[in-house]
């Protein structure tokens, strides 16, 4: 039990590294299954000159990379299968590719886990106290 608690931070690092990878992939829409009509395209300013694209498809907002979001307008009919690299917009194929962020996450997330594991090992190396003392 005590060992499990000691390993909790590393477990969280693994989980959040996986979330960074998933989130950047999801913004490319590649892992998502989409089938419906675009009902709203919302663009919001974030962090200076950055813009964030939220596309509403059948009452569900999806955050997308700008390369995809900028192609869509309300009324478009969109469809794609999960993990397909083609988005069909009004019957026309739009090729999808990993964004720069997604490619970055592919090496950043494993590095984060490796650094977390190394730090855990460093902290516990030769430790006399995974037990409390006064």
């Amino acid at each position: 039990m005590r060992r499990a608690l000691v390993c909790l931070p590393l477990g969280l690092v693994v989980a959040f590294a996986a979330l960074t990878m998933w989130e950047t992939l999801a913004r490319s829409t590649i892992p998502l299954s989409i089938d419906g009509q675009v009902t709203e395209v919302a663009v919001r300013a974030e962090d200076g000159d950055q813009r964030v694209w939220f596309i509403e498809v059948d009452d569900e907002f999806v955050r997308m990379d700008e390369e995809i979001g900028a192609r869509l307008v309300a009324g478009d009919v969109v469809r794609k299968d999960a993990w397909s690299t083609t988005l069909v917009v009004n019957g026309n194929d739009v090729p999808l590719k990993l964004s720069r962020d997604a490619r970055g996450a592919l090496w950043f997330a494993p590095l984060l886990v490796i650094l977390g594991a190394a730090l855990t090992w460093l902290q516990l190396r030769g430790s006399p106290d995974t037990q409390s003392r006064t």
Binding site: L10, L12, V13, A17, L112, L119, Q123
Partner: peptide
């Protein structure tokens, strides 16, 4: 992730 690493 920063919080978890800092807690170490």
């Amino acid at each position: 992730a920063g919080a978890a690493l800092a807690a170490m």
